[in-house]
Design a protein around this nucleic acid. Structure first.
Lengths: 117, 117
DNA sequence: TTAGGCCCTGACACCGGTGGAAAGGTCAAA
DNA sequence: TTTGACCTTTCCACCGGTGTCAGGGCCTAA
């Protein structure tokens, strides 16, 4: 499948698909004409990428996370890898909590500022 | 007072002070040599700017807000202006609430993702 | 052969506050 | 007069995912 079809199937723009590839999240064979050729797994992969992006993870984190999510690693390797994943996500969760806390503090500051104004 | 002293008194870098000026938040006379010369009110102004920045307002919003905060406008003009200010801040507050809500949704998504992993 | 649709790479722009470098002018004290 | 601290402006970089443009190759049907 070429990039246009993958784009249609996933809703990701051509630009985004090439970006995911540049970030190491997505791979493609190349035809003799240089066109990217995706296999049918690509659709699921792109959907997973976009889900994780929506959640708020960076491509950097997603690159770490994806092999486990996709179940690429078999046997014991999979388990230890996913333990690492859990650690990464936990850290990410903590970061998010920090951001939320900060925003809430700002919100309170603004609200009291508003009350005084 | 020159920029170095204002910087020392407020903790804002030279770079930031010039940026605030470029954004229309801060004004300075110019000496014959072209140096910026600040009056003593500048210290308070810069502190107010940084407070508002810390709260999470953009320079754009701060530019709108500042004249009221500084009490520059006298009499009835001040009051109506500050009503407008209240409206701006309320909108800003709503935006913040949206951001917080979004982040919290992401956080939940991530947490449940983590629980499944 | 040409039109039109598909694909390619590379590069700039966005946002917003800050850091930093480059290249130069000013001024006071030694 | 020289040193060194202080000031000036202008420009690039950061972050990160996406839009968009330029300039070009490929392929198929008319």
């Amino acid at each position: 499948m070429l990039i246009g079809e993958l784009s249609r199937l996933t809703g990701a723009s051509h630009r985004s698909l090439r970006y995911y590839e540049a970030q190491g999240l997505l791979t493609a064979r190349r035809g003799v004409n240089g066109y990217r050729e995706y296999d049918e797994h690509a659709v699921a992969t792109v959907r997973q990428i976009r889900t994780l992006l929506d959640i708020g993870l960076s491509t950097d984190v997603i690159r770490t996370v994806l092999p486990c999510v996709r179940g690429e690693l078999r046997d014991p390797a999979h388990l230890t890898w996913c333990d690492d994943l859990r650690a990464v996500l936990s850290r990410e969760l903590a970061t998010m909590d920090d951001r939320i806390t900060g925003l809430q503090r700002s919100r309170r500051a603004l609200a009291s500022y508003l009350a005084e104004a």
